[in-house]
Design a protein around this nucleic acid. Sequence first.
DNA 1: ACCTGAACACCGTTCAAGT
DNA 2: ACCTGAACACCGTTCAAGT
Lengths: 208, 208
Amino acid sequence: MARESLTREEILVAAGSLVRRHGPAALTMRGLAAELGTAVTSIYWHVGNRESLLDALVERTVEELGEIQPRGRTPAARVVSVARTLRRELRARPHLIAMVHERGLTERMFLPAQQALVHEVHAAGLRGARAAQAVRAVQFQVVGYVLVERNRERAPRQRPAEEELWHTATAEQDPSLARALAAPADHERLFTVSVRALVDGLLRDREE
Amino acid sequence: MARESLTREEILVAAGSLVRRHGPAALTMRGLAAELGTAVTSIYWHVGNRESLLDALVERTVEELGEIQPRGRTPAARVVSVARTLRRELRARPHLIAMVHERGLTERMFLPAQQALVHEVHAAGLRGARAAQAVRAVQFQVVGYVLVERNRERAPRQRPAEEELWHTATAEQDPSLARALAAPADHERLFTVSVRALVDGLLRDREE
DNA sequence: ACCTGAACACCGTTCAAGT
DNA sequence: ACCTGAACACCGTTCAAGT
């Protein structure tokens, strides 16, 4: 008994929602077919196979990440806003981002952001290789930060735990450092602080 | 017909080599058994199941990354050497590192490096939260760099290609920047330059 | 043009049976 | 203590057949 008009879009939406919530391993063709109320083979007609279904989800993700709108009065503020937006968007779909990464498309995903950054860095007076360096520095910072951050959140209880490890003795008689490294980082704040510092540093040094 | 004395170690070595070369997807229990000349079920006796076999490989990777030996005369040079060593070790086993990452063990993997960094940062005169910040900044930089870098190398031919995208017009009349962003980055050099700049910045500012 | 079930060649894992 | 083959419940994919 057929349902009416299964569409490629419908398949992508269902698959996307599944992958977003439970990761790519949770996407089985049979499971997806059951959820959609069709035969497994119907899905094949619309999307080819599992791999190209995942490719389509990745492509969609790359496009969504491309819509970047810098905000703020100064170039520095706008660069920071791009970084913060990227971080938010990346964190909203970790599994899909990991798949973009696996397929080696991260760079392409970041091209629109790069364009925006070029504009702002130019507005701040940087030119040439120096400007390129600044753009890449910000990009690396955001990607690296999100990855490390997500990792910290997902990390299983560690042995030895950080609280055990970072006591005054191991921190070489620096209790304040031990406290800082034992505590879970305030990622929201640390990210903004880091990006601001980096951007200020990159834009300030331009008269060297 | 049995082979003599299959060992857990032998299994780990064969599985590790397989995963290193072709990634975890290439590790099938049947394939591994064939390569070792045993029945599939013998492997189960030694390692439990596929998942804990992968866990063991990950555990081994974490331990290998823990052996860090700072080199150089100044604290700054030793911090840079730790960063460079980490990068090299990470790049030598990308699939295994990705698995460490997936299992949320990256932070634990970096603990020995953190310890080494704490020592050097202290030697440079930093203390407390500021020292902790410096340690984390270096760690984030290395991880982020390796990930972005690997991605660039694996990226499929892009459309539009960077050479197309970054011409004088899109680079806002900055031909030198267009050239810089269109060219593949010299990662070895860019990494060292970036880390040096970061470390200098972190250690220099200590009298604020 | 779109959908279907049957069949194929793979998986990881369990288990009772061997030595 | 260690190894085995058979069997189970899953996969993704193909294909001939339907409408």
